[in-house]
Design a protein around this nucleic acid. Sequence first.
DNA 1: GTGGGTGCAAAGTGTTTGCAAGTGT
DNA 2: ACACTTGCAAACACTTTGCACCCAC
Lengths: 162, 162
Amino acid sequence: MPARDSQTCKARFVEFLATKNLRVTPQRQAILESVFATEEHFTAEQLLEWAQRRDRSVSRATVYRTLPLLTESGLLREMDLGKDHTYYDPNHADHPDHNHIICEDCDKIVEFESDKITKLESEISHKLGFSVKAQRLQITASCDELKKLGHCSKKSCEPAHK
Amino acid sequence: MPARDSQTCKARFVEFLATKNLRVTPQRQAILESVFATEEHFTAEQLLEWAQRRDRSVSRATVYRTLPLLTESGLLREMDLGKDHTYYDPNHADHPDHNHIICEDCDKIVEFESDKITKLESEISHKLGFSVKAQRLQITASCDELKKLGHCSKKSCEPAHK
DNA sequence: GTGGGTGCAAAGTGTTTGCAAGTGT
DNA sequence: ACACTTGCAAACACTTTGCACCCAC
């Protein structure tokens, strides 16, 4: 998937804030910068740490208050990975229909898109009398190579950390 | 989707307990009966209420301790619907690959299966070097009829409760 | 100037757990 | 008898919120 344009994302968020009569504060900017400096999924706690590196004054409360704004504006998407905290996906803005393969061996997540699946979802939904608004597909899988060779050569398939 | 055989499910769970050297207690039986008396998705709190109707002695702690056993045995599946609590799907045993359409108008959930989607998932995963272990697809949709007529005639599409 | 925003710490809430007593096998 | 189980209540962990002060527009 092509990389996103972080400038565009930031502009979109500022616009979103304006629409709702909300303000562009230094804290929100620090959070915004942090969000679009990564393409990885992250937690609220991680985001707090990143944002504080840019602006010491960012508090946990502000992170938790900004996260819903980012999801509401469509720039971020909540992800439930079965852990005790919520993950956020910064790749949603450019690829709203992308799916996830989660390797149960190494916890790594691979993203992919499939027009065919998207189309089928739409067709089936239509038959059942619905219009698709959003979709989320998570595949839990195991790494073929790891199973066969006992290790995993994929760059995207490192041993699970922690 | 054809209805499940609750007798088989119960037998499977008893067997699962035996395998792990766990015991068949009255409380677990009450919970088990309750789980397979419904085809709807439910919460831990609902399950507690149902189980207590069969056996007053069932406590919240036992429900929370039994739920992981039921998921581990493959009879139940956790569902995240974006609410603050976890939902459980009792239809997983017979239809492990079924998907969900969640109507954002009325909160109703419709289940469906699609061999084509399942196959595509498998193919794509294989190409990326993974073997599918499980999958979950949730489609958020809106009810066509509701949008056009202002109300919803589908039996499965009642107004959202609460 | 004013309505929104912030940090802090306390509160909230679904879920988990330590403990002493009970019970299936 | 020996583990495994249970109910109760306290503990947890992530997230939310009340409040008094602050600041972007």
